[in-house]
Amino acid sequence: MSHPLDLHQLAQDIKQWGLSLGFQQVGICDTDLTPEEPRLQAWLDKQYHGEMDWMARHGMMRARPHELLPGTLRVISVRMNYLPAKAAFASTLKNPRLGYVSRYALGRDYHKVLRNRLKKLGDMIRERCGDTQYRPFVDSAPLLERPLAAKAGLGWTGKHSLILNREAGSWFFLGELLVDIPLPVDQPQQENCGRCVACITTCPTGAIVEPGVVDARRCISYLTIELEGAIPQEFRPLIGNRIYGCDDCQLICPWNRYGQLTDEDDFSPRAVLHAPPLTELFAWDEATFLRITEGSAIRRIGHLRWLRNVAVALGNAPYDKEITTILASRLGENPMLDEHIHWAVSQQQDKRAAYAVEVQRPQQKRLVRAIEKGLPRDA
């Protein structure tokens, strides 16, 4: 830097610039995440990362931001709300014939939105400070973004492992900007979950194994997004109609009563993904999938995993002869998909049998009453 800077004023200016770029909050912290290293190692040792090999491959680098950008002194952490005005949580989750997409993925891919804004923030800082170095991150590198956000005062780590904020709940994205400027740091917020364990008890698959610790191998978000192969059969009935991600632990959280709605057009739900019939989604060919999910985070799972997820949801739907026909129409396309189709068809057949029993039961009851009354059997 060519001349001394008022670092306190610069920190305030950076926060104002962040707000002007559409972030709802900006915080600053140092790079020391030493207390997180044993927790991260214990999580990895228990194989809670599942098939996300990159989590283990980068090891403790995730807790050392200065190794990602040598010379880094501070992390500027930001949050941006994503909850749309008409999220339609209940109406979609309660209708098993519709597909539920986690609400963060209904609009444009947040990675691109936040990264572009963070780059603009970095450019503004460089314009003020001269030849300073910066690097933006949005889930794009081995970085413990949640502990950094908590350290920067954006909120505290909830028992579901997400960052919670008193004024905004948890319906927001996080992003980071590494800089080589010794800015004054912010203070962390106090933990405010108290004795509440709603997120732990409501998780359909029991993925939150202890406060703040998630076994990804059981998490529906992992199973429908990160897992590349077959979904374990034990979890398929528990997934319900969730075809991309899961919001249950957030939906039940009392702090999300204060969740703030987004005003970003990029995060507005795409109508075709908002509350779509499962039968329509399963009919998409790859070209249709790629066209509809262009610019969306959903595209990264690919057409095959998309069909896998929808097949599971169709298996969990109420019995419908059309569902069995639609499922069978894609047999032979891929062995992994075939496995899920056979499972889903079996589920539908079981429900058909149960339905037949329910239909016959009232007739049997009438027959018994008629016999008891000594009436003709056709009465």
Score class of each variant (00 low, 15 high):
237 P>C: 07
69 L>I: 00
126 R>Y: 11
216 A>C: 00
91 S>T: 12
234 E>F: 02
347 Q>L: 03
75 V>M: 00
86 K>D: 11
374 G>D: 10
136 P>C: 03
227 L>P: 01
236 R>D: 01
185 V>E: 14
199 C>S: 04
133 Q>D: 12
225 I>G: 13
205 T>N: 10
193 C>N: 01
226 E>L: 08
375 L>S: 05
228 E>A: 10
114 L>D: 03
290 L>F: 08
266 D>N: 13
151 K>W: 03
29 C>N: 04
302 G>H: 00
328 A>G: 06
351 K>L: 06
79 R>L: 13
356 A>T: 15
32 D>T: 08
228 E>L: 07
180 D>V: 01
63 A>Q: 00
378 D>Y: 09
68 L>V: 05
179 V>C: 03
284 W>N: 12
243 I>S: 11
148 L>F: 07
349 Q>C: 03
226 E>T: 08
350 D>V: 05
143 L>S: 03
22 G>K: 01
87 A>K: 09
51 E>H: 05
131 D>Y: 14
193 C>M: 04
29 C>I: 04
110 Y>L: 05
252 I>Q: 02
148 L>C: 05
221 S>H: 02
323 I>C: 13
166 R>A: 11
277 P>Q: 01
203 C>P: 12
118 L>R: 01
97 R>T: 09
253 C>D: 13
221 S>E: 02
57 R>Q: 05
100 Y>D: 04
379 A>L: 15
94 K>H: 11
324 T>M: 12
334 N>W: 07
216 A>Q: 01
286 E>T: 09
206 G>Y: 02
210 E>N: 08
157 T>I: 15
266 D>C: 14
371 I>E: 08
364 Q>R: 06
317 A>P: 08
315 G>S: 11
119 K>G: 00
103 R>T: 14
281 L>Q: 09
280 E>W: 03
113 V>M: 11
173 F>R: 02
74 R>Y: 07
226 E>C: 08
5 L>Q: 04
311 A>D: 11
271 A>I: 12
